[in-house]
């Protein structure tokens, strides 16, 4: 390979020209491995709805109990970075174990939570889909839960808690 390196590595003006194009911290960021490892932050424009809904649900559910992400991380033994990414709506590749642990902690149906997290495919006609979108649209990030947010959260939690939905 050394002969090829001698031939292809840059020097002189070619190196200067190439170096001058590296003006941004992310000019050569590559995503293949990051996708595999679930580390990539998908741009908002391409975010699937489940990521946003799941993140919003986590934020409101923990705030309703007065918990921080650090509290949750230690209580359910889930990586804090993953929780931050979920709440920011960036966790396109959420771990099944994380969904299960959160379902147990907040006493909701794990299968429903798996649906809103995007972990499993939603079924056509599932009332959870419309409810999830309405929930995301109605809830805003604020210091305290407003009455509207609390009502939205309660309604959504009731749906999550029920396992007798139309599949």
């Amino acid at each position: 390979m050394n002969a090829q390196l001698d031939r292809y590595l840059l020097s002189g003006d070619d190196l200067l020209k190439a170096a001058s194009t590296e003006t941004s911290s992310e000019v050569f960021a590559v995503g293949g491995l990051l996708c595999e490892l679930g580390l990539i932050a998908t741009p908002a424009a391409r975010l699937p709805v489940p990521c946003l809904v799941f993140g919003r649900w986590l934020e409101l559910a923990r705030r309703a109990r007065g918990l921080t992400l650090l509290d949750i991380s230690s209580q359910v033994n889930v990586d804090l970075h993953e929780l931050v990414r979920i709440e920011c709506g960036e966790a396109a590749c959420v771990q099944p174990r994380t969904v299960h642990q959160l379902a147990v902690l907040f006493a909701v149906d794990p299968r429903s939570l798996a649906v809103i997290s995007g972990l499993i495919q939603d079924q056509p006609g599932n009332p959870l889909t419309g409810a999830a979108v309405r929930f995301a649209a109605q809830s805003e990030s604020m210091e305290k839960l407003s009455k509207g947010e609390r009502d939205a959260l309660n309604e959504f939690v009731q749906l999550l808690a029920s396992s007798e939905r139309t599949e």
């Binding site: 390979m1 002969a3 090829q4 390196l5 031939r7 292809y8 590595l9 840059l10 190196l15 190439a18 170096a19 194009t21 590296e22 941004s24 992310e26 000019v27 050569f28 960021a29 590559v30 995503g31 293949g32 996708c35 990539i40 741009p43």
Partner: peptide, 27 residues
């Protein structure tokens, strides 16, 4: 830039004729 050239050199030495593929982040 140099590391991309290393990938090209590897591709040539593997007889892939310099073909290199990747998934790029938007920026």
């Amino acid at each position: 830039s140099q590391l991309v050239q290393v990938a090209v050199a590897l591709s040539v030495s593997e007889e892939f004729r310099g073909r290199v593929g990747l998934h790029s982040l938007p920026q």
